[in-house]
Nucleic acid binder design. Structure first.
Length: 453
DNA sequence: ACTGACCGACAACCAGCGGACCCA
DNA sequence: TGGGTCAAGTTCTTGTCGGTCAG
């Protein structure tokens, strides 16, 4: 017992545990691997494994992490009080956990301070190339070290590296031993079926997640919690409004469908409800909906019902009355900076033509063109833009003070992200406004309720 | 170097009120 | 007559992203 020895090494996203069989069996989450005749556990269990071994009176030869040298980092940045609290909460939780803070509250800065405080090799994982660039810029300004970059056509690893989720996913098994701290920006993405493997394969014991909305409707935040840790600090937009973020009002406006729209809506919606009645499905949650989706693979009636539901959704999301209402809003806010959000790209182009507003969708040819439009918006050459979902996340959108949602999903996340676009601190007394325009007597009233308007 | 086409991944997707059938 | 089960083997569409590869 006393002189047993244990050797830990990293192999393709797992920690290999060379130890006597009887000791292996006492270790949590360590499985016996008959091929190598050793114990084995996923990379993310490394920290708990070390803790468990510390309880035993054994000599541990730990060769898991292969870290490069990193000079002590220093940044001139001063954290605000709540940012300080957030960082402390994370450290108190054993350098594991998630910070849930609204868009514009300076999550990046907290992370930079965490990197500075620990000065250990760090991997930062982000969902988009845009964020890749932003992090690279911030890190470059703050720290005087070479930065690695994985994604956007480059694959360069340095002690401090920024990666996309996609690239990290492709290389996690091989990179898992190179970093002691991993930061997941927009950490809710880590709940995705494939992306969760990133968290699983990395051995980094220190883990920080950043997001504005931790909970996922599919429940996968529990996976994230296991891989990164629980939420250790949380503030909402309301908490910071009027102080570090702009004060804001949310105005809900209901508009009527035209008689033609009403007729089409009722017909499509009717097809859907008829199917529900006929199949006996109780529509209580998203899983009931998924049940219909599942059936639609083999059952033509289910498929027809789903298509009808989608057509009904299109009718209400694109209702003509919303366009008229928008005309009034644009008129009232002549001097303001306005972002208009829709659910469908078709409507984006219709609005763009009718109101002569630049459009941004995923189809906008080339990132360059999109960037040019945003740049002109930033400089004030444009005071309005129309977009679908493109600007929801991961794009550095210049500040606006009026947002108009013509069509959106029931997603709380989408709503917060859109709201976040108008919440940067404003001049004294100025308030941001978010308009939700909703088709009355349609399912959209419930949809808007779900996202908590 | 840039571009477009392709692929796979991810996310959202949520009625309003009484039927049909098989088997023990 | 009464009670239980109703459709399984992989699943709708739209919007958006990153990675890859050919030209």
């Amino acid at each position: 017992m006393t002189d047993a020895s244990v050797r830990l090494t990293f192999e393709g996203g797992t920690v290999r545990v060379d130890a006597p069989r009887d000791l292996l069996e006492t270790l949590p989450d360590v499985e016996y691997d008959p091929r190598t005749e050793t114990g084995r556990t996923p990379g993310f269990r490394y920290a708990t494994l070390r803790a468990a071994l510390a309880e035993h009176d054994v000599e541990v030869e730990d060769r898991v992490l292969a870290l490069s040298d990193l000079p002590a980092l220093r940044s001139a940045y001063e954290l605000r009080e709540y940012q300080h609290e957030a960082l402390d909460a994370w450290r108190d939780a054993g350098q594991r956990g998630v910070l849930e803070l609204p868009t514009g509250s300076g999550k990046t800065v907290i992370a930079l301070k965490a990197i500075e405080a620990l000065s250990i090799p760090t991997l930062i994982v982000v969902p988009t190339i845009d964020l890749l660039d932003q992090w690279e810029r911030e890190l470059g300004t703050e720290f005087d070290v070479d930065l690695g970059r994985l994604g956007g056509g480059e694959q360069r690893v340095e002690p401090i590296t920024v990666s996309t989720y996609d690239s990290a996913y492709l290389r996690a098994d091989e990179l898992g031993d190179r970093f002691e701290l991993v930061i997941f920006d927009e950490v809710h993405h880590l709940g995705g079926e494939g992306f969760r493997d990133i968290g699983r394969l990395l051995a980094a014991p220190a883990r920080l997640g950043l997001t504005a909305t931790f909970e996922r409707p599919d429940g996968a935040h529990e996976v994230v919690e296991e891989l990164v840790g629980p939420v250790v600090y949380r503030l909402s937009a309301e908490d910071l409004a009027g102080d570090h973020l702009a004060a804001f009002d949310i105005k809900r406006i209901e508009v009527a469908l035209t008689p033609e729209e009403r007729e089409r809506y009722e017909e499509f919606q009717g097809t859907f409800t008829d199917y529900l009645a006929q199949s006996g499905i109780q529509m209580r949650s998203g899983s009931d909906y998924r049940e219909i989706v599942k059936r639609s693979g083999n059952d033509p009636a289910a498929r027809e019902a789903l298509l009808a539901k989608q057509r009904a959704r299109e009718v209400m999301m694109n209702a003509e009355g919303k366009v008229e209402e928008l005309a009034g809003i644009l008129d009232r806010h002549r001097g303001d900076r306005v972002i208009v959000f829709t659910a469908y790209t078709d409507l984006v182009y219709r609005l763009s033509e009718r109101f002569l507003i630049p459009a941004i969708t995923h189809e906008v040819p080339k990132v360059q063109a999109r960037r040019r439009i945003l740049e002109k918006f930033r400089r004030g050459e444009y005071s309005r833009i129309v977009s679908s979902h493109v600007l929801d996340e991961g794009v550095d959108v210049p500040d606006a003070n009026v947002a108009v949602i013509l069509g959106g999903s029931g997603s709380e996340r989408e709503f917060k992200q859109r709201l976040g676009r108008v919440l940067r601190p404003k001049a004294e007394g100025e308030r941001a406004i978010l308009y939700e325009i909703i088709a009355e007597e349609t399912a959209e009233e419930r949809v808007a309720e779900r996202r908590r308007g």
